[in-house]
Structure formats: C-alpha cells, structure tokens
C-alpha cells in the first residue's frame, strides 16, 4: 500500500527523520564490520581500539532511535502503517546494535589472531562471509528505504549462502585441527568468527522480515 502524505506535514518530517537515523546507523554498522574484517588481515592496534570503542556510539544510536519512536507513539498515537513505521524501527535498531556487537567481537579477535597463524583458507572464507553479510545488510537497508518487499525477500534467501559458508568453515577447521593441532586457539577463533557472521546474517534476515511487516502488516516470524 503506497503511503500518501499526512495532513500534518510535521508528522512526515518526524517519520522521515526516524528513517534517516536507521539508515545512518545501518551504514555505520556496515563500515564497522568492514573495518573489523580488514583488521583481521592488516592488524592495527589503534584501529582495533577505535572499533571497540565505536560500539558505544552504535549503542547510543540505538537508544536515540528508541527515544524518537517512543516520543512519536506518545505524541502521534499512530495506527496501522504509521504504527508499524514507528514501532518496527525499534526492532531494526536492536538488530543493528547486535550486528555492531559482532563487529566489535571481530575486532577483538583480530587482536588475538594477529599474534598467531590461523588457517588461511578458513580466513578467506570468513572474509567472504563478512562481505556477504555487509552486502545483505546494505540491501536490507535499501529495502527498508524503498519499502521494497521483493528486495527484502531476496535478502532473506541470501542468508542460506552465509549458513552454508559457516558449515564449510566448521568442517575445514575440524579437519585442520585434526591434521595440524599446533594452534588450536587460533583455529577455534576462526570457527567463532564464522559463527558470529552467521549470527549477523540472521539479524539481517530479521531486519528484512521487519521491512516486510512494515509494508504488508504481516509478521513472517509469526506466520512461519
């Protein structure tokens, strides 16, 4: 259903501002994940410290979106599409905040892995996962911006690829640990990194579901 403008134009401005905050938070989470993944290859202690500290900024953005949504609910008493446009950004911001947590966790593991020699093929797979999750998130945000349910459905399907790579990494690392058990810790960290990106992919899927619900009013999780 195409949304026409509100009679109260200020309402549209407030909704637009809320949407821009979500898009901004999402973009910064993508950057945080990209930078954390780069730190796996080219370790820079200062950069890792910055990435870990940046998580507080992401948490602040989450809180800001919650406050804005709460204020809109209290002042505008939204219904139907409006209610979903105000309520579901809280959920989307929560998912973004959790993805930000995974990015921070990736940065911390970069610090540990910098002093070890993890399996290179597995590292490549993890980097591939990160890039796919970043692309998925960018598409999910575009679906949100454009109220595009078809694009949101594509994002949900892409997650199957992420899940498969996670399984591949796990199998590779089990084999590596059996064949060359010299650096168990580094290779376990790679399994955990892959699992983190797999979880991040799940959060992106949730964002795509929220987009579907905003546009159609149907909660896919409830109807599954």
């Amino acid at each position: 259903m195409q949304a026409t403008p509100h009679i109260m134009s200020r309402y549209d401005k407030d909704l637009g501002k809320l949407k821009r905050r979500i898009l901004s938070m999402g973009t910064q989470v993508i950057d945080q994940m990209a930078d954390a993944t780069e730190a796996l290859d080219q370790f820079d202690a200062k950069e890792v410290d910055r990435l870990v500290a940046f998580d507080r900024t992401i948490n602040g953005m989450h809180q800001d979106i919650y406050t804005r949504s709460e204020r809109l609910i209290a002042l505008r008493q939204p219904m139907a599409l409006d209610l979903r446009q105000v309520l579901l950004p809280i959920n989307i911001a929560h998912e973004l905040e959790r993805i930000g947590d995974h990015a921070k966790s990736t940065a911390k593991r970069a610090r540990i892995l910098a002093e070890r020699e993890p399996s290179q093929p597995a590292c490549d797979k993890v980097r591939e996962m990160s890039e796919k999750v970043q692309a998925m998130l960018a598409e999910a945000l575009r679906a949100y911006d454009e109220s595009n349910v078809e694009l949101a459905a594509t994002v949900r399907e892409t997650d199957l690829t992420i899940d498969q790579i996670n399984k591949d990494v796990f199998a590779m690392q089990v084999a590596t640990l059996s064949d060359t058990p010299e650096d168990v810790e580094a290779n376990v960290h790679l399994i955990l990194l892959a699992r983190g990106f797999e979880r991040a992919g799940d959060h992106v899927v949730n964002i795509a579901r929220h987009v579907h619900q905003i546009v159609t009013g149907i909660d896919l999780k409830a109807s599954d």
Binding site: H6, I7, D82
Partner: peptide, 12 residues
C-alpha cells in the same frame, strides 16, 4: 487504502 489514509490522518 481509503481506510488507511483516514485512520492515519493522510491526504486521501
């Protein structure tokens, strides 16, 4: 859509 526009205070 007409219902949605009315209950959400949109220009119908």
């Amino acid at each position: 859509e007409q219902t949605q526009n009315y209950i959400t205070g949109r220009i119908g």
